[in-house]
Every structure is written in C-alpha cells, then in structure tokens.
Simulated assay, not measured.
Amino acid sequence: MKHRITPLRFIQKNWLLVGILICILLAGIYPELGSKEGPLRTEYTVKYGAVFLIFFISGLSLKTEAIFHTFQRHKLHSFIQIFTFIFIPIFTQAFIRIVSIFRVNVWILKGLITVACMPPPVSSAVILTRAAQGNETAAIFNSILGSFLGIIITPLLLLFNLGSTTVVPLLDTVIQLLTTVVIPLVLGQGIIKFTSFRGHTLPLNAVSQCALLFVIYTTFCDTFLVPESGMSALDVIFTVFSVLILQVILMFLSFKFASSMKKHFDAQDIIAIVFCSTHKSLTLGIPILRIMFHGYSHLSQISLPLLVYHPTQIILGGLMVSQLKDWVHSQRVKRPPV
C-alpha cells in the first residue's frame, strides 16, 4: 500500500528545496537586509560565520581515516577537475556557437564563456553533496583543490578563450580558503580526535543546511540588487534559459560519464562528481570580472550569466537532492554482498 504524499510529508522530504524557495521570496521582498554592507553585515556573517560553521560541522562529522583514503582517490579527483576546467569550457564554446544563430547579445555570450572558466565554489557543492548522502569528503577536497587550481588555470582559460587575462588576487584567495575552509575543518577534526565529543545527539546536518540557506538568502539579496542597466528584457530571459539549459546538460553529462565508470566510482562518488564538477564560484568570479572588464560599459551584460548561474545551480541542486538520495539508497540495495 502506497503512502499518500501529504503537504507535510513533502516538506519533510524536500525541506532544503522549500527553504531555498522561501529564501528567494524573502530576498525578493527586502533584498537590502541581506546584501553586502547591509544590516546583517553579510561580508562577515557569511564568510566567517555561515561558511566557517559549514566546514566546522564537516570536520566534526568526517572520519579521519576516510579523509586520508579520499586524498588517494586520484581518478576521482582527476575526473572532477578535468570536467571542470577542460570539458566545460570546450562544451560551452560549442554551446554558444549554436545559440549565437539567434543573434544573442555578444557580451552575454562572452559572459557564458567566462562562467565556464571559473573554479568550483567551496560551500554549496559540499552541502548539496552531503544532503544527497554523497561523498562529502571528496566534495570538500575537490572544492578546495579546484579553488587553488583556479588561481592559475582560470586566467589561462580566459586568455585562451577570450584573448584577455587578469591577475587573480592570490593572497586574498589563499587567506579566505584557509580561514573559512581549512581552519574550521582542522578544528572539527581536532575536537573529534582529542575530546570525547562526537555530536551524535546534535542535529549537525540540519544546522549546516540552515547555514547554507543563509548563504543562499544573501546571494539572492545581492542578485536582486544588481542594476540591469544596458540590458533588454530579452537579454535577461535568454540568459536565464541558456544558463538553465547549459546546467541541466552539464549535470546530465557528468552523471552519465561517471555512471559509465562504475569500476572506479560508486554511487556516493557520482553524487560528489555531479555537484563539484558543474558548480561555479560566484565569490571568485565577480572580482575577476570586475578586474578584467573595469570601465567597460558592458560589464553588466558580461556579469549577468554568472549572477544567474550561481543561484540556478543551487535551485537545481535543491530539486535533485531528494531524488539523488533515493538513487543512492537504491544502489546500496542492488549492491551484492561482499
């Protein structure tokens, strides 16, 4: 007998998605509250509060042996980084050649290429992987690795694809990764190793997802406050649809490619691959765009695809978490006993 899906049951199963939609609604009503330099001081409360908390909880939750084992998964890391920095830029070049026949604003097309060259973010992919019961350790490692690689690779990709380059703020990026990712992870691991605290009675997963919702809320607040000067409604509509189609295709391809390599990747690895290999960083991307195109009258058009890509990847991820979690469970049931 099948259980009837009640609204309460749906919310319980998909509460992260419901939370994301509520965050979007609240951000649209009063975006100034959660914007940078707004009353919530998100330049500090997000970076050194919510993101720090997310990775501190990860440090409390991960087994040290699993971390060292994951570090040695060279094929897994290579797949994610190659998909991120090689496959996506090549595929996006082919994608914009197709959509350019519709005489789209050339600066928006340049913005799509710029997005393709960006490294992964360090928070959303990790939390979505954890929420879908994927390989969280692999997600953390590859988010950090991708961010460091992006310091070198992203300017080279921009030079190759656009004929222009920039200098990524190396010191600022390294300090940010250390203070918001590495240090909280080490603190969490230190507490597990040197104290009796294990956190089994605390809702750590729910707390980390609430921290992610705060990050999402502030992201949308900033997005809603971006001026749309120089853009027609058609430009905005095309950007939203093209980014959505591009992301769906990339997530589908990463899932299919990884699933075809079941000899090397299990279901949890594939979840980490789907999120880590297709997500792009807004935090590093916006400063790069402002350095590259400072003084350009077309900066808003170039920035629009990245501003759309970041929240879209979170919404798509929220939509997929419940289905991917069910898929992981189904794969465990199918797995033959050792």
Results as ranks from 00 to 15, higher is better:
residue 1 M to Q: 12
residue 2 K to R: 14
residue 5 I to H: 11
residue 7 P to C: 08
residue 17 L to P: 05
residue 17 L to C: 12
residue 19 G to Y: 15
residue 20 I to W: 11
residue 21 L to R: 05
residue 23 C to V: 12
residue 24 I to E: 09
residue 27 A to T: 10
residue 31 P to Y: 10
residue 35 S to C: 06
residue 43 E to F: 02
residue 43 E to W: 04
residue 47 K to D: 14
residue 47 K to C: 08
residue 48 Y to T: 12
residue 49 G to N: 12
residue 51 V to E: 05
residue 60 L to H: 04
residue 70 T to E: 04
residue 80 I to V: 09
residue 84 T to N: 15
residue 84 T to H: 04
residue 86 I to H: 06
residue 87 F to G: 04
residue 89 P to D: 02
residue 95 F to A: 06
residue 95 F to S: 11
residue 100 S to Y: 00
residue 100 S to M: 01
residue 102 F to D: 00
residue 102 F to V: 02
residue 103 R to M: 12
residue 106 V to M: 06
residue 109 L to A: 08
residue 109 L to C: 06
residue 115 V to P: 09
residue 115 V to W: 05
residue 117 C to L: 11
residue 124 S to D: 08
residue 132 A to W: 09
residue 135 N to S: 13
residue 136 E to F: 02
residue 139 A to H: 11
residue 141 F to I: 14
residue 144 I to M: 09
residue 145 L to F: 09
residue 146 G to K: 02
residue 155 P to E: 11
residue 160 F to D: 06
residue 161 N to E: 11
residue 164 S to K: 10
residue 169 P to K: 08
residue 172 D to L: 08
residue 175 I to W: 03
residue 177 L to T: 05
residue 178 L to V: 15
residue 179 T to S: 09
residue 179 T to H: 07
residue 181 V to S: 06
residue 184 P to S: 04
residue 184 P to Y: 04
residue 201 T to R: 13
residue 204 L to E: 08
residue 207 V to C: 04
residue 211 A to Y: 02
residue 212 L to W: 11
residue 215 V to E: 02
residue 217 Y to W: 07
residue 220 F to V: 14
residue 222 D to Y: 05
residue 224 F to Q: 03
residue 227 P to A: 11
residue 233 A to R: 10
residue 241 F to W: 14
residue 244 L to S: 08
residue 246 L to S: 12
residue 246 L to I: 02
residue 248 V to R: 00
residue 251 M to H: 14
residue 263 K to I: 06
residue 267 A to D: 14
residue 269 D to A: 13
residue 270 I to K: 11
residue 271 I to A: 08
residue 275 F to Q: 03
residue 278 T to L: 02
residue 279 H to S: 06
residue 284 L to R: 04
residue 286 I to W: 00
residue 287 P to L: 12
residue 288 I to A: 01
residue 289 L to C: 07
residue 292 M to V: 03
residue 293 F to W: 13
residue 306 L to I: 13
residue 309 Y to E: 03
residue 315 I to E: 05
residue 317 G to S: 09
residue 317 G to V: 11
residue 323 Q to G: 08
residue 328 V to I: 03
residue 329 H to F: 04
residue 335 R to D: 02
residue 337 P to N: 07
residue 338 V to M: 15
